[in-house]
């Protein structure tokens, strides 16, 4: 993955009953049946394998895609797999109204961009439209629609630019 501050890609808008999908926990993202997998390249096939309506995500995702969800994305366990499965598929970033605390750390440490858009309306963005995510600015744009969220924190940006926590530490 190249290190860019503006990411452009196809947007997966995850919804449940017409609303942005909230409380997607780590078992829905990456089920505990596959936790013994340690090779990142083998994790992509299980992404959203337990998420109602999106169990075929791994087959349909394309490198460069962006994922958009509701509140509390990635709540639950501490598994790094739930971040790494997206990296394996070439997904560029996950965007959500809010994230579970551990998920947020895991994403930041592995240099995987996440952006919070608090209060994002359910229907502002549409499935599979091409969107542009500005990490520095913390905003998501598609067509005429723009939503301002939280910019990437300084630590997150530094670790992201370094390519991960260990790579960041080498530069300290």
């Amino acid at each position: 993955m190249s290190v860019e501050m503006i990411l452009k890609g196809r947007l997966w808008v995850l919804t449940e009953n017409g609303q942005l999908f909230s409380d997607i926990d780590t078992d829905m993202i990456y089920h505990n049946a596959h936790l013994a997998v340690t090779d990142i390249d083998k994790m992509g096939q299980y992404a959203f394998g337990n998420l109602e309506g999106y169990k075929d995500f791994a087959d349909k995702a394309q490198p460069g895609d962006l994922v958009l969800a509701g509140d509390n994305f990635g709540s639950g366990s501490s598994r790094q797999h739930a971040v790494d499965c997206f990296k394996a598929l070439g997904v560029q970033a996950v965007i959500a109204r809010s994230f579970g605390a551990i998920y947020k750390r895991n994403a930041i440490n592995s240099g995987f961009p996440i952006i919070e858009l608090p209060g994002l309306p359910d229907d502002l963005f549409s499935q599979f439209e091409i969107a542009e995510l500005n990490l520095e600015g913390g905003n998501l744009n598609a067509g005429d629609n723009r939503y301002q969220g939280n910019p990437m924190s300084e630590v997150a940006r530094d670790i992201y630019l370094a390519g991960g926590l260990f790579q960041y530490a080498e530069r300290m």
């Binding site: 501490s78 598994r79 971040v83 895991n106 926590l165 260990f166 530490a169």
Partner: peptide, 30 residues
């Protein structure tokens, strides 16, 4: 540690936090 319920340490007025394997490896090393 790598257990998302390590914040159970709050029960004794201590800090505890579950983290992913990258964080924990970093904690082991540094």
């Amino acid at each position: 540690g790598t257990d998302s319920h390590l914040n159970i340490m709050g029960s004794v007025g201590a800090f505890g936090q579950g983290m992913g394997d990258v964080d924990i490896a970093y904690a082991f090393k540094t």
